[in-house]
Amino acid sequence: MARFDDITATVGDTPLVGLPRLSPSPEVRLWAKLEGANPTGSVKDRVAAKMIEAAEADGLLHPGATILEPTSGNTGIGVAMIARRKGYKLVAVMPENTSLERRQLLSAFGAEIVFSPAAGGSNAAVAKARAMAAERPDWVMLNQYANPANAAAHYEGTAPELLRDLPEITHFVAGLGTTATLMGVGRYLREHAPGVQIVAAEPRYGELVYGLRNLDEGFVPELYDEKVLDRRLSVGTEDALRRTREVLSEEGLFVGLSTGAVLHAGLQIAKEAAKAGRTADIALLVADGGWKYLSTGAYSDVLDDAVGALDGQVWA
């Protein structure tokens, strides 16, 4: 059945597709869960829907309420869509070094954008949102970094879908941001498919993003529990970009840059499994499609130029 009451009902139940050309052998296979198929084009629609539902259930949100959220884009766009549908306002606090399309989409969905400084990346956005929340106690900050509903969206949605479609799964790889995808899916798989390896692909940005004034300004999301992970790999801008292009040319998948990082980690795992003679079914989380990154030149410029252009950006 592909008929729905309204747009918000289309969140989730995304396709899982094989990557036969990038998989090393019929015994070691890569699979991609296409979260770009969600209504605003990213995995964050699941999160936005769940966090808003939880805030409504807790009596925090009433008609006309204002939601405040620090976001580099995708969560804000998801929240903005649902807020528009349900009659809430959104104030999104976003680092100024994020792609043009993300700003345009937020505005298109009616969100108000407040910029935080480029240096410090999302840390600065979180800090600014917290300061604003303290001044406006009537606004509702969903706080995706600490909100259990964020991980629950993946525990209750993303993970069961994955296991339904790939019961033979051996590895799950996703990008590390709020950490909620890995926490939610990881916990579910640990309970229902013991032995599955949970692997984080952490984007390694340019220096600007790590430009804290001191180490105590560092940030580890409240949701993060390292015990849920087996492995955490850091992937630089050039590797992520190269893989983003590779999956486009080899498999016809037009994905965002965080997926390049996830694929880079997934290919390393695939290579190790093939070398050791093990079978593997590696599920990669494709957080979004490439649409929001076109203006960065990620798909069209000479590789070195594109890497240079992304260097100071929060590209995942």
Partner: peptide, 11 residues
Amino acid sequence: VTILPAVAGGM
């Protein structure tokens, strides 16, 4: 070996 401060990622 790479040393980095822990920062909030994209979201």
